[in-house]
Amino acid sequence: MASAELEKLISEAVKGDRKSISRLITMLERGDKQSFHYLVNNIKDSYTASYIVGFVGPPGAGKSTLLGKLVKKLLEKQGGKIGVLTVDPTSLLSGGSFMGNRIRMVEDLKGINQVYVRSFSAGHSLGGLTVGVYFASKLLTLAGYNTVFIEGVGAGHLDVKPLLYSHTRVAVLTPTSGDIIQMVKAGVMELCDLYIINRADEGNPFFVKSQLEETLRLRIHPDKWVPPVLTTIATAEKGVQEVAEAILQHKKYLEDSGEYCRRIKDMVVTELKDIFTTEVNEAFESFMEKNKTLIDKYLKNDENKTAIISYIVEGVTEEIVRRWVVDVAET
């Protein structure tokens, strides 16, 4: 795409044209380097201009249903425009993805022009986010969406990227999410600012709530924010108002305490790591596609495996340098 055409497309997206926003996000998902470099160099204040909320939890916790109800409540309370970026798992066999998360939001959000919803495939990224999600959130910020929700893929304790790339971090659990042993495990459970026990009309939600609250009391909270534990029944819209209020309270806390700026630094580190990891993976696949015999050589017992690994590292490094030098020179 010519630079003038790309600039026009971005100009229309900034004005709020949904088709232009969607087209740009599709280009980013497909790895379009020109749009990637343009956005990297031209989106200003993308970390401070919008408020990003990470939403994670196990499959079946009701994240999407709750999110649909929550977005409506937040629009009522604060107005503005809200973006929702949801991530669905990718098939290891076909490489495809069934974008099911947004289906659960349709009834609540259809026809609301102040809301933009986009689904992503997790691909093979570790942690549940692809680089496209990061830049989609920046693009929405540029288009005037003052709040952006990122819903994780639902990969349990490894579903950390939506949390690391957000100002406020939310975990959605159920009354069957486990005992105190699960609660104290590292990963998602130690990162969140707000815990929600959804589907509270099942099992024993108040037992899980008390267990989680006890766990949180035992932890050191260096930023002085003690995460609240709330119960909801999303399908009946019970407790959703309290969740909306808790999220806005945490936003105010971040702004008043200066923690907002520290979170932004965490977000930048997460983004840069994933950009680098993505480039390495793509370069590795490209190099190995050109050197298919290396696998057979590596399997032979009489081959120097260290030398083969060194050869691959050098080849992948050259591929990364070639890509970036050429791409940057052309933009």
Results as ranks from 00 to 15, higher is better:
A186M: 12
S137C: 05
E151P: 01
F206Q: 15
V133Q: 02
A49L: 12
D302W: 00
I220S: 13
R102P: 08
G203N: 09
T90I: 01
S310N: 13
E314Y: 07
A186E: 13
S50K: 10
I308M: 00
V208F: 12
Q249S: 13
G178K: 09
V84I: 00
A246F: 06
L163Q: 04
R104H: 11
T277D: 15
H167P: 03
L194C: 05
E213T: 01
S97A: 10
V133Y: 02
R263P: 01
K19R: 12
L28H: 05
I103D: 12
E289S: 13
W225L: 01
A307D: 09
V326A: 13
H221K: 09
D193E: 09
T176K: 15
R102I: 10
H221I: 01
L93M: 15
K185Y: 02
K8V: 10
D266W: 12
Y165T: 08
A4G: 11
T231K: 05
D32S: 00
L191Q: 11
L173C: 06
K33G: 11
K138N: 14
L66P: 05
L129S: 04
T26P: 03
I295A: 13
P162D: 02
V56S: 09
V184N: 10
G57F: 06
I52T: 10
G68Y: 02
V71F: 03
S3F: 14
H167N: 05
T130S: 09
S91P: 01
D108A: 12
R118D: 00
T232C: 07
P58Q: 15
Y47A: 06
A329E: 10
L140D: 06
V229D: 08
P222E: 01
G31R: 04
T231W: 09
K273I: 13
Y134W: 05
I181P: 11
F120V: 00
Y195L: 07
L254N: 06
A329S: 11
I181A: 15
A61L: 07
A2T: 15
K33C: 06
I308K: 00
V71T: 08
E237M: 08
K15H: 09
L272G: 10
V328H: 04
E237D: 13
D327S: 10
D17G: 07
S50N: 11
C192T: 04
G123N: 05
S22F: 01
T90S: 08
V243L: 00
N281P: 11
G239P: 05
G187C: 11
A307H: 05
E255C: 07
